[in-house]
């Protein structure tokens, strides 16, 4: 059958294509370009092939060792954040009121940390956790626990993770709350009549019905925490030593601190591919499980 077509519609897409080209395509190509070249300043570039990538992926080299250290740190950070924020977010969402004035009040309160600019979050926590004048730091020290995030790596980690939990758990809560609200009342009534306790209701109804929003929450939280830069940079600057030097912080150090554009470019490409791969694998496995289940 002859389908009448109107190819002029493509013209409407042109502005978007142009915009995407400027905002994404050209910068990415620039980075790719840098990653296969070396420079000694003066805007002179030399072809370097895949040497940067080989060095980066070989842990025995200086660059490679530093890259893998930062990568494990970042993975650990993301893992800790997910491990705390997802269960905590679900728990808080379950505790929220389902009707009345409390709904609006708690949702607005929860949304507050999400509205604060990231560098401000960093600044708040930098002061908040300071051992001498910060409310938290001084209080903990007052309890007789030695706590100094500028000196002690463990304290630095606790501070950074606590900050992320404070900043982002609300997002998980809001997503879960939306998922919970979408469950028809009949399910709860049926469960009541079936004599199900709170745990059985959670396992049989709430968790399965939240599966989709949880997928989104995990993806968002993984991507954001894996790419975190501003907040730890403001609070610890990657220290003490390299204790909280995550991939993004290390990347900036190499690119802007040492001006090793080639190494930094190769690193950002690998960094990007890791995020894409992890997200794709996660998404593919969770949605395949769902589509199989719904067949």
């Amino acid at each position: 059958m002859a389908k009448p077509r109107d190819d002029r519609a493509w013209l409407l897409v042109l502005p978007v294509l142009a915009l995407v080209a400027f905002s994404a395509l050209i910068p990415v190509m620039t980075v790719v370009n840098y990653s296969v070249q070396d420079t000694f300043g003066n805007n002179q570039f030399f072809w370097n092939g895949t040497a940067w990538f080989k060095e980066l992926l070989d842990p025995s080299t200086d660059l490679g060792g530093r890259f893998f250290d930062a990568l494990w740190r970042t993975l650990l950070f993301s893992g800790l954040c997910l491990l705390i924020e997802i269960p905590l977010g679900i728990a808080v969402a379950l505790c929220l009121p389902r009707k009345g004035w409390g709904v609006a009040a708690s949702l607005v309160t929860l949304a507050l940390p999400l509205l604060i600019p990231w560098n401000v979050v960093g600044t708040i926590w930098q002061v908040f956790a300071r051992g001498d004048i910060g409310l938290l730091g001084a209080a903990v020290n007052g309890l007789g626990i030695d706590y100094n995030y500028a000196r002690d790596p463990l304290a630095a980690w606790i501070t950074v993770v606590a900050m992320d939990v404070w900043h982002w758990t609300s997002l998980v809560v809001l997503l879960c709350y939306a998922g919970l609200r979408a469950i028809p009342d009949a399910y709860y009534q049926a469960a009541k009549v079936d004599g199900a306790g709170a745990w059985a209701v959670f396992r049989a109804i709430q968790l399965p019905k939240m599966q989709r929003v949880l997928t989104i929450a995990v993806l968002l939280r993984f991507m954001d925490s894996f790419m975190i830069y501003t907040e730890p940079f403001v609070v610890t600057g990657g220290g003490p030593g390299n204790a909280t030097t995550f991939l993004s912080i290390d990347l900036v150090k190499i690119a802007l601190g040492q001006f090793d554009l080639g190494k930094a470019a190769a690193m950002s490409i690998v960094y990007n591919l890791i995020i894409l791969t992890v997200c794709w694998v996660f998404y593919a496995t969770t949605t395949r499980g769902q589509s199989e289940a719904s067949r």
């Binding site: 028809p184 009949a186 009534q189 049926a190 109804i205 399965p208 289940a293």
Partner: peptide, 10 residues
Amino acid sequence: FQFPVVYDTM
């Protein structure tokens, strides 16, 4: 109920 309630994952 009016709309069937089953426990999806079971």
